[in-house]
Write a protein that binds this DNA or RNA. Structure first.
Length: 223
DNA sequence: AACTTCCTCAACCGCTTGCAG
DNA sequence: TCTGCAAGCGGTTGAGGAAGT
């Protein structure tokens, strides 16, 4: 990834693509001396042939001091889940409650896990379809012999499927309710959780609740 | 060992917001 | 109040590496 690929330059003549260590050094040195902000002038003054946007992004997501690198902790995961249930895709807002983590990082994390969940729900749908097909075949065979008895059995199977599915497809508002009731110490006026308490809550809760429940049972994550 | 598929994450793009003149 | 610019934000893309076949 660090190697220069065929990114080229933008229409305005700015360099695009991955940053080189030299560029990082220039940007870090400039910002530590002059501070951040006024990114377009940072780009020029630091001798970088980059757009202000690109400089800002690089600084915020990679060079800024205090950034945590590496995997998110279970506590952080829990906080993300909880806050996403409250605010949706407000990545920068969520990032404020995770010191050292960037909105981009959280966004990427969510996307990764959301995709996981999406796939599992597709599998679930496929399984349902298979069961229905089998049922229909079975129905054709049995209908002439024992129509009433079979009807009862079919209803029973479908009911079981539906009830187990219903748990997974809770409506968004209800999900929010769940999140609200779970976050015990909640400032309703400012709509901001007391994150000291939340850390505890989420940590203990995610320890108690297994991953399967977390990703597919408690909340339907597709908004 | 070779190939394919999946996952991760850095970076870009376009839209929105905030602010100064 | 209007306009233009810069910063911020969320969505999307694509390269590289890992895992699977």
């Amino acid at each position: 990834m660090a190697t220069m690929m065929a990114w080229g330059v933008s229409e305005q003549g700015w360099r695009k693509g991955p940053w080189t260590p030299e560029e990082d050094k220039l940007l870090s040195e400039y910002v530590s001396l002059h501070g951040d902000g006024r990114w377009s002038s940072v780009a020029r003054s630091a001798g970088l042939n980059r757009s202000g946007k690109s400089c800002r992004l690089r600084w915020v997501n990679y060079l800024r001091p205090g950034l945590k690198r590496g995997q998110l902790t279970p506590q952080e995961e829990g906080i993300i889940i909880e806050l996403h249930a409250l605010w949706g895709n407000k990545w920068s807002t969520i990032a404020k409650y995770l010191p050292g983590r960037t909105d981009n990082e959280i966004k990427n994390y969510w996307r990764t896990h959301f995709k996981k969940k999406e796939k599992s729900s597709i599998k679930h749908e496929q399984r349902k379809q298979q069961i229905k097909q089998l049922e229909e075949q079975h129905l054709e065979q049995q209908e002439q012999q024992q129509p009433i008895e079979h009807d009862m059995m079919t209803r029973s199977v479908l009911f079981h499927e539906e009830t187990s599915t219903d748990q997974k497809t809770t409506e968004p508002q209800e999900r929010q309710q769940t999140a609200f009731t779970h976050t015990t110490n909640y400032d309703q006026h400012q709509c901001l959780p007391h994150h000291h308490v939340m850390h505890q809550d989420v940590a203990s809760w995610s320890d108690t609740v297994g991953d399967d429940v977390l990703w597919s049972g408690l909340w339907n994550l597709d908004d």
